[in-house]
Design a protein around this nucleic acid. Structure first.
Lengths: 250, 250
DNA sequence: TGTATGCGTTGTGTATACAATAGCGAGGGC
DNA sequence: GCCCTCGCTATTGTATACACAACGCATACA
């Protein structure tokens, strides 16, 4: 094992996990395909033990599925799986928003959320929105959702939301990507931003039910738009991990 | 490795996982305690590789926590963590009930649920309820919740609910155990059964919102009762994995 | 020609050896 | 007397060897 380049800065397990996830998400490994440990060892540069650990973690994350006779395969998702995952995430975020509202949040904690809001407002002011601005939007939106989740101050809930976001199409970025595929994309982003504004307002005024409702509506909007986008498959290459969608009737 | 008794019927990994989970839940390993691989190797009878796999899985399950410098420790939960986990589970089950109601369920699919219902009715008819009957109740209740979850026909949601139930105090049995610690236990079980009846009725009549609401109320009831039970710590030894609760002010 | 059986190959499950790191204790210097 | 540093030990991270099981192919027999 002389010539193998070993990067000691990160653990082999983490390195293998990242490499494999990337391979899955970029479509190098097709859904349903069996993932061979030896092959993974070659492509990741780690040895079998860390590769196996990475495979177990990716299974728990939901990207892989255990094969009864042994080994793992890339999981395949139906369109319904994806919309359910988005709605699921929305429901959890709704609960997070309600917790935040009911338990109370200081002005200081809300500040970064408001900064996000303002930054997004500025981006959305541009008509039409530039590619760079859109990219910034994706980042800011993810940040907003993460901060909102944190506001719940509930480690079990935060953990569960993180898990629900592991599936790329169910992550906040996935929301946006799906919506961006539609012609009326900018209008949709503006409505989403309105939701963001309402949830902050509801939390500030300690209106738990309203905070929860708006987050759920936020997700339902994303589901509706994803359905539309999947009908007329335009620009869907923007949607990460589209490769994971079972080409249903194929 | 001649004298080590090896059971080939189940994998060493699974065996180690079960053994370690039991050790954690029965309190042999205290919350916050570092769990040594070598020690686990001795107590489980498996070797280090399967033990490590089991540790990773238990971490993903939420029973263990990774230590930054390496290794794992038993996770500790606050009272709030526990009530949040129960509410979280109730929210997910509410979503499952709504999915079932909105998507429609055949009479044939509802039948096992109704059988559960009837069996529980019979048990609760006894006043006061016997220990054996209570034990049957726990099983039947768990079955009811599992069947209800299945009705959603949503693999991502089912998966998430299963994960949320991995924490023993957040499982349906945990609900019941917590409630049983109170003097008015039987009355509480009867109210819970009423919830079960309502959710079935709502699903049959395709009333999604009502089905969801009653499951959430079901969980909120459990949370309230858990709080009460923790106040007057009577019979709490019935609550599995109570050992995981951080003895907050200790 | 079709089917069944046996052998070979491939790949996972398990065990263990080796390497590296972190934590702790002891000793010496300031 | 206290603190800093060096080294040892214990424990984890990684690599690899070995064993067993499953799948496929080929061959032989019906």
């Amino acid at each position: 094992m002389a010539e193998r380049e070993v990067d000691r800065s990160v653990s082999q397990t983490v390195k293998a996990q990242l490499a494999l996830r990337e391979q899955i998400l970029d479509g190098s490994l097709r859904p349903g395909e069996r993932i061979s440990e030896l092959q993974a060892v070659e492509t990741t540069g780690a040895s079998r033990t860390p590769v196996r650990m990475a495979l177990v973690r990716l299974e728990e994350e939901g990207l892989l599925e255990a094969i009864p006779s042994g080994g793992f395969m890339v999981k395949a998702f139906s369109e319904r799986d994806i919309s359910d995952s988005i709605e699921l995430r929305g429901t959890l975020e709704g609960l997070a928003a309600r917790f935040a509202a009911e338990r109370g949040v200081s002005a200081r904690e809300l500040e970064p959320l408001k900064e996000c809001l303002a930054a997004i407002d500025e981006l959305l002011g541009q008509v039409p929105i530039s590619i760079e601005a859109f990219s910034s939007y994706v980042t800011l939106n993810a940040r907003f959702h993460a901060l909102l989740t944190e506001l719940s101050r509930s480690p079990p809930l935060i953990r569960q939301i993180d898990r629900a976001s592991a599936l790329p199409f169910a992550s906040p970025s996935g929301f946006v990507m799906a919506q961006s595929a539609l012609p009326e994309a900018q209008q949709i982003l503006i409505i989403g931003q309105e939701h963001h504004r309402v949830v902050i307002d509801a939390i500030e005024n300690r209106e738990g039910a309203r905070a929860e409702a708006v987050m759920r509506e936020h997700a339902r909007l994303a589901v509706r738009n994803l359905r539309l986008a999947l009908r007329n498959r335009t620009h869907l290459d923007l949607l990460p991990a589209l490769a994971l969608i079972k080409t249903a009737t194929d």
